[in-house]
């Protein structure tokens, strides 16, 4: 019961979705199932929210190191829930969009979450700089190719790159850095991307078959063995 039923569900649903492609009447079954996913995803998110509360409340109650920051996290989480679920300050009332700028939820979203998000990602620019130093040391042939490709792409997207080769005669325009960058993107890069995509595609197909046929059972946890 604990192992066989989930395996049967997986087999039935997986096979149904594959077979449905071959009939015009059931062609869109995948899209209809995706709505189920969305509904299930919310319940999974309830689990995540509950876990967040449990972890931080435990940290606060046991006064573990840096517990004060857990208070900040919980306050942020609860304020956002309160503001969003009740649409506090929303001029259009409960029927209006939750991210309306006048609402408390919208204000926090635009003045806190958006800046924090973009700053967090932009922080990576500094770490990428140190990663570049390590990657750009041309230790062997492969690293040199990576270095040259990355360098041309980087230069090709800047005004400096355009300026560097702007003196070239029109007959050599293909060797200009921006054009070279375009060629790299459209030819060797495309070839590499295709090899990776085909590899991923074949991998997904074989893994999906293993899952549907019950060969792969790791998603069931320890009892799935």
């Amino acid at each position: 019961m604990k192992r066989q039923v989930p395996l049967l569900i997986t087999f039935f649903v997986g096979t149904l979705l594959i077979v449905s492609i071959f009939s015009p009447a059931t062609e869109n079954l995948g899209e209809e199932f995706s709505v189920f996913f969305d509904v299930i995803a919310v319940f999974a998110f309830f689990l995540g929210g509950g876990n967040l509360l449990r972890v931080h409340l435990t940290k606060i109650s046991r006064k573990r190191e840096d517990w004060v920051y857990s208070v900040v996290t919980l306050v942020g989480f609860i304020v956002m829930l309160w503001a969003g679920l009740f649409k506090i300050g929303n001029e259009g009332g409960i029927a209006a969009s939750v991210t309306e700028e006048s609402s408390l939820f919208g204000m926090v979203f635009y003045s806190v979450l958006i800046p924090l998000q973009s700053t967090m990602y932009s922080l990576l620019a500094f770490f990428i700089a140190s990663a570049s130093y390590r990657a750009f040391r041309a230790k062997n042939r492969e690293a040199t190719i990576l270095l040259v490709a990355a360098f041309i792409i980087l230069l090709g997207r800047t005004a400096f790159g355009t300026m560097l080769t702007s003196w070239m005669p029109p007959s050599l325009s293909l060797a200009e850095i921006p054009n070279l960058a375009i060629w790299i993107m459209n030819s060797p890069n495309l070839a590499g991307q295709r090899a990776i995509m085909i590899g991923i595609g074949l991998g997904v197909v074989s893994m999906s078959l293993r899952i549907i046929l019950g060969v792969e059972r790791t998603y069931l946890g320890d009892d799935g063995k």
Partner: peptide
């Protein structure tokens, strides 16, 4: 910490 709390709340809502 603000980022973690607010992001979780945002996605939940």
């Amino acid at each position: 910490s603000i980022f973690v709390g607010i992001s979780a709340g945002y996605w939940f809502v």
